[in-house]
Design a protein around this nucleic acid. Structure first.
Lengths: 285, 285
DNA sequence: TAGTGGTCTAGACCACATC
DNA sequence: ATGTGGTCTAGACCACTAA
C-alpha cells in the first residue's frame, strides 16, 4: 500500500509543470547552446520544440562528437533520462526516431547501439542494383578492381557536390565491380581531402571489405543517408571498354552524394551500371 | 487529494494483468478471426503479437472493408480505444504506424483521416522524375495524350505481374506526358479487369486529374505502395517517334507494380523516361 | 467552448540477454 | 539474478480546430 503514495500529485506535479513550460522555453537551452554551429541557424527558427526533439538533438550531438562510436552501446534509457532530467518515456521517443533513421539500433535485452556499416551482413549499404534472376539477395561477393586512385584537385562540379571550393584537395578513384566475373559496375568516386586527411591511394586500394566501414573505423566518418540522380546514358570509349560492352549499349548513370550527420556531404560517386542482366530496384511508399 | 486514489493499485491491477495475458493469447482473437483470408497464412505464424499490432490489423481491415473511405475521418482515438477495449495509448501506437505508412493522416485538432490521392497537392504520387533545372518541385501541369486505350487479354508477363492468369481481361492503355510541350514520358499501363469492372476506355480518356483519385472514388481501389525496376534501354521505332527522339537515344525504362492493401497488385506500368532534361531522383536511408 | 491529436510523465509487467 | 528494451496503461496538460 505504501508505493501507492508514489503517485501523489504533490510529488509529481512540479515535474509536469516544468515539462509543460519547457515546451516554450527549453530547460535544456544551456546544454543545447554548447552546439558550436547551430543547425537551426537557417530560417526564423521555431524558437521551441518538443522535449523529446531536444533530447534527440542532444543524442545526435553525442554521436557527432564521437562520445559513442559506431558499434558501441549508448547508455540505457534510464541513464539518459537521468542525465537529461526527463522521463524514460521521453528518451524512448527520441531514441525511437533515431532508430527509425537508422542512426541507432535497438536490441532487446542488450541495449541500444550506434549503427555501423562494419559487422553487418550487407556489403553495399546503398547499392540498389539486383540481378534479374538468381539469389533473392545478392549473388555472392563482387570482385573489385581499382582502375585508378590518386589525390587530385576538385573540379567545379565535384567541389559543388561536396561543398568544397574548386581546386580543393580530393581523393579520386575509379574502380570496376564484377559479379560472377562479369564487369557490371564502373564507379568514379571523390572524397573530400580534409575529413579524410591521411587516407592514401595505397591504403584505399589495399583495403578489402566495405568502404564505409573503413571510413568509420579510421576517420570517424559515418554515412547517414544519400541522394541519387539516375539517367540513361551511352558510355564513352574508355567506359565501354572497361565494362566490355558496345559503345551503343545504354547504361544507367547513377550519381550519388552521401551525407554524414547534419547533411554534410562526404562522398560523391558516379556509377555506370549495366542493366542487361541487372536492374535498379526501388520501393515507393 | 481525492483523485490521487485513482492511481491505487487495486483498481488498475486487473487491467494490467489482462493486457499482459493478451500478449500471449489475444483477447481480440474472436473479432480478429473474422478475417476471411488470413494474411499471416505464410509461415508457421507468430501465434501471438503485441496488442497494438492486433489493433493495427483491425483498423486495416476496416480500411479494406471500406468502413472508412479515403478522405474521411476515422473515429477518435478514445472511441477506437473503447471499441477495442484497450487504452488510448495503445490505439495511438497502432495509428502511429499506419500514419507512418501513409495509410492514415493525422491532423491536430481535427482528427485522423484516411489517406487519399484526391484533394492533394501532389499530382503524381509515385513519379520520381524531376527537371534538371527550374522549379524545386514540379514544373507546372503536364499535358497528357492518350495514344491508345482498350480492353485486352493479359499476356503471360502482364498476368504474372498482376497476379492474374494469361488471357484474363485487362484494361490496357498507352499515354504520352509532355512537360512544357516536350514529350518526356511514354507510359504503358495495365489494370486488372475484375477490380476495375465497368471502367471503359472512354471513361479513362475523358477523365482529367489524378488517375489514382479516379480509382479511389469510382472503384474503391487505393494504391498503397509500389515497386519499381529501372533499366537503361533504347526505344523501338514507335517509341522513338512518340518521344521525338532518335532511336539511339538511351532512355530510362521504369516498370512499376502498384499494390493496394495486403500486397495485392492492382496496376502495372511500363514507362520510358527521357533523361536529357530530367532525372530520376531517389533518397536512400 | 468542446473535442481532437500532441507531449510528457509514471509505473507495472513481459521478453530477452548476460552473468 | 540483474538489467535491457518492449508493451500497456493511466492521467495530466498543451496546441489546434471548429462550432
Amino acid at each position: 500500500m505504501i508505493d501507492t503514495f508514489l503517485h501523489i500529485r504533490d510529488a509529481s506535479r512540479p515535474l509536469v509543470i516544468m515539462a509543460a513550460v519547457s515546451h516554450l522555453s527549453p530547460v535544456l537551452a544551456a546544454e543545447a547552446r554548447s552546439d558550436p554551429d547551430g543547425a537551426a541557424m537557417a530560417g526564423p527558427a521555431p524558437a521551441f520544440s518538443p522535449l523529446y526533439q531536444q533530447i534527440k538533438q542532444l543524442i545526435l550531438q553525442g554521436l557527432q562528437r564521437g562520445e559513442w562510436r559506431p558499434g558501441e552501446v549508448i547508455p540505457s534509457e534510464f541513464e539518459l533520462a537521468a542525465r537529461y532530467k526527463v522521463s524514460q518515456g521521453t528518451v524512448r521517443k527520441a531514441v525511437d526516431e533515431l532508430a527509425a533513421e537508422h542512426l541507432l539500433v535497438r536490441r532487446q535485452g542488450r541495449g541500444t547501439f550506434v549503427a555501423t556499416h562494419a559487422e553487418q551482413q550487407v556489403q553495399y549499404r546503398f547499392l540498389r542494383l539486383h540481378p534479374d534472376q538468381g539469389a533473392v539477395d545478392g549473388e555472392g561477393p563482387a570482385q573489385r578492381d581499382f582502375v585508378d586512385c590518386r589525390r587530385a584537385r576538385a573540379s567545379a562540379d565535384v567541389a559543388r557536390a561536396l561543398g568544397l571550393r574548386t581546386g580543393d584537395s580530393v581523393l579520386q578513384s575509379r574502380r570496376l565491380l564484377r559479379f560472377g566475373g562479369v564487369p557490371t559496375i564502373l564507379e568514379d568516386l571523390w572524397l573530400p581531402g580534409g575529413p579524410f586527411k591521411g587516407l592514401t591511394a595505397e591504403r584505399l586500394m589495399d583495403y578489402h571489405g566495405p568502404m564505409y566501414a573503413l571510413f568509420e573505423a579510421e576517420f570517424g566518418v559515418r554515412m547517414v543517408r544519400a541522394d541519387e540522380r539516375i539517367r540513361a546514358v551511352l558510355p564513352d570509349a574508355a567506359q565501354a571498354r572497361l565494362l566490355a560492352v558496345d559503345a551503343s549499349t545504354p547504361l544507367l548513370s547513377v550519381e550519388r552524394i552521401a551525407y554524414t550527420y547534419n547533411d554534410v556531404p562526404m562522398e560523391l560517386r558516379r556509377g555506370l551500371y549495366r542493366t542487361d542482366t541487372h536492374h535498379y530496384r526501388n520501393q515507393l511508399n
